[in-house]
Nucleic acid binder design. Structure first.
Lengths: 144, 144
DNA sequence: TTACCTGCAAAGGGTTTGCACTTTG
DNA sequence: CAAAGTGCAAACCCTTTGCAGGTAA
C-alpha cells in the first residue's frame, strides 16, 4: 500500500481539497504517535512542531481525514473521541475498565463470524468492530 | 434469572443504596423500551409517567444502574451515549449502513476469542461488544 | 485571483455538579 | 432523625462554527 502521505495527497486531490501544512503535519503526528490519541493530546504534539496550529484546525482536519478514510475515530467506553491512523490490517481492542489501558489484538475468528453471519442473513459485511472490556493484569493484581 | 425489578432491589440493597420511585421507573422504562435509548429520549418517556423527574436524575440513575451491572452504555459511532437494560444473554449487533436496520445475533466464537485473549494477556474479561457493519440483504438488492 | 483554509473566540450540546429541599430506612 | 437522593440551574468539557484574515492552486 502507498505511504500515508501519498494516500493523503491523492485523497485530497481526488476530493478537490487542498494540501496544507496543517493537514500534512496532523496526519504525520497521528501516524507516528501512540495508537490512540485524543484531540487535545494530538493538538499538544502537533504544537511542538508548529505552535500556531489551533485546536479548531485539529478537529476540522480530523473530520476531513475520517471522511477520506485515513483516520478512524474510536469511542472505546471513553466520553471523548480517540483517533488513529488506519493501518493495513483490521485490529480489535481490549480496554481496562479501571485504568483505561488499551490493548490491540487481532484474530482470524472474527472473519469466521463474519462469514457465518453473511451466509445466514444474506448480508454484505464492510467492517467489524470488536471491543472487549475487563481488567488488565496490573489492575487485577491491584484490586486483590 | 430473576426479573429486572428484583435484581434492582437486590443490587441496591447490596450496595447500600436506596430504592426510589425514580430509579424503579427509569429501569422499568429502559427495560421495555426499544433497544437503544439516549438519555433525553429516556427522560421524555419517563416524564410521561412522572413529569417531575429531572434529566439530572436520569443521568445519575443511569450511572448507578451501570455500576450495578443492570444497564449498559453503548457509543456505537454516536457522539452521545445510548443505554440498554442488560438481558440474560449477551448479543451482538449488525447494522446496515444504508437503512440502519439492526440484526441481533449470537455466536460461541466470541467466547473463544475472549479465552484466547485472557490467556495471552493475563486480563479478566467482563464483557465483549461486537458490531458488524455492512449492507443488509434488501439494501444489497436495492443497489444492484 | 479566488476559493478554500486557518486562528480566534464564542456558541453548542451532552453530561455533571453545588445547593437546598425531600425522602428512604 | 441522619444520610442518601432529587430538582433546579449553573458549570463543565469536548466539539463545532461565524468571521476576518491568510494561503494553495
Amino acid at each position: 500500500m502507498a505511504s500515508l502521505d501519498e494516500r493523503l495527497e491523492d485523497a485530497l486531490r481526488a476530493s478537490g481539497r487542498r494540501s496544507t501544512t496543517q493537514r500534512r503535519l496532523i496526519l504525520e503526528v497521528l501516524a507516528e504517535g501512540s495508537l490512540h490519541l485524543d484531540a487535545s493530546e494530538l493538538h499538544a504534539r502537533v504544537r511542538e512542531r508548529d505552535p500556531s496550529i489551533s485546536l479548531a484546525t485539529v478537529y476540522r482536519t480530523l473530520a476531513v481525514l475520517k471522511e477520506l478514510g485515513l483516520v478512524e475515530e474510536h469511542r472505546l467506553g471513553q466520553d471523548h473521541g480517540l483517533y488513529e491512523a488506519i493501518h493495513d490490517e483490521p485490529h480489535y481492542h481490549f480496554t481496562c475498565l479501571r485504568c483505561g489501558k488499551v490493548i490491540e489484538f487481532d484474530t482470524p475468528l472474527v472473519e469466521l463470524i463474519e462469514q457465518e453471519l453473511a451466509e445466514r442473513e444474506g448480508i454484505g459485511v464492510t467492517r467489524t468492530h470488536l471491543l472487549v472490556s475487563g481488567y488488565c493484569a496490573e489492575c487485577r493484581a491491584a484490586t486483590h
